[in-house]
């Protein structure tokens, strides 16, 4: 679509600009200010230069948290993306009651407040009162997410899969819906295998939405906070302490505001870098496909 060059369009942007700037720019500036100072209390600050940044960048525990975070995010992507595609392929098409019901059921986990997701799994996984924990116990698996690091980590992962795979599935479903039926008919006449249909018709059509799915899932899992906080509180040990948790501990728990601010900026820059790469890929691939 060819757009018209007109700088007066800025007037239409101004409300959004103001409201987001109020909520984003002022806090961001403040975080930058904090990051170069030692904060003792209101009005009692002391300039320390880049000391906090050095402390953050050489902090072993933070490196561990970062590694844990990256492994976690990659695991989330490795499970949710293929599973989401598989589910989308099995979804009924058309506007039938069956379709509506499937859509609503799939979307349900996305509408549950994050901490309630944690609560659901807390109840579900406990050995004494939870269905999952009790089942494991009954078949003789030693499962306890409050004591065992691996169990805790896996539970958080399964919880994330439970919570967010629907998003990937719905995105892929939207992509599949945009394929004209004529494509399938042609493939059928040619006797193309299911795999060929997937590889050469369905997958290319899903490319755009898949990029969005990867982007959203990466960002959100990289910032995961509430669910593990409710479920495990970051433990046992540090096994489910991800970056956000570590940051909140630092800022609220230890009141180490300067360091937390420096950490925030590094964190933000990492996310910004990934966002930019993904965004560039999305817009460039989109311009090729769209008319």
């Amino acid at each position: 679509m060819d757009k018209v060059q007109d700088n007066r369009a800025w007037f239409l942007i101004i409300p959004v600009f103001l409201i987001v700037a109020f909520s984003a720019v002022i806090p961001l500036m403040t975080v930058v200010n904090y990051s170069v100072q030692e904060i003792f209390g209101p009005g009692q600050t002391f300039f320390v230069g880049t000391e906090w940044f050095e402390a953050v960048l050489t902090d072993e525990r933070l490196h561990d948290a970062l590694v844990r975070q990256i492994i976690y995010s990659l695991a989330v992507l490795a499970i949710e993306i293929p599973l989401g595609i598989l589910i989308a392929l099995g979804m009924p098409g058309g506007r039938s009651a069956k379709t509506s019901l499937t859509l609503v059921l799939l979307a349900l986990p996305l509408l549950i407040p994050f901490n309630v997701v944690g609560t659901i799994w807390q109840i579900f996984g406990r050995g004494d009162i939870g269905l999952l924990g009790a089942t494991f116990r009954a078949i003789g698996v030693d499962y306890n997410y409050t004591n065992n690091s691996l169990d805790a980590w896996l539970t958080v992962l399964v919880m994330d899969v439970w919570h967010w795979t629907s998003l990937v599935a719905l995105l892929c479903y939207a992509g599949l819906q945009s394929i004209p039926p004529a494509f399938y008919q042609a493939a059928k006449i040619d006797g193309a295998s299911k795999w060929a249909v997937f590889r050469y018709i369905q997958l290319p059509k899903m490319r755009g939405v898949l990029i969005i799915a990867v982007l959203l899932r990466f960002m959100d899992s990289f910032m995961i906070y509430t669910e593990p906080f409710v479920l495990t509180g970051g433990g046992p040990g540090n096994s489910t302490t991800f970056l956000s948790q570590y940051l909140t501990q630092m800022a609220v728990g230890q009141f180490d505001i300067g360091k937390a601010a420096a950490f925030s900026i590094v964190y933000f820059l990492i996310v910004l870098l990934f966002s930019f790469i993904f965004y560039t890929v999305i817009t460039n691939s989109g311009s090729g496909e769209k008319k």
Binding site: I26, M29, V32, N33, Y34, V36, Q37, P42, T45
Partner: peptide, 15 residues
Amino acid sequence: MGWMAWTAPTAIFFV
């Protein structure tokens, strides 16, 4: 707005 804790270097940076 004192809580924003401006310092000269950060102010110069944003300017």
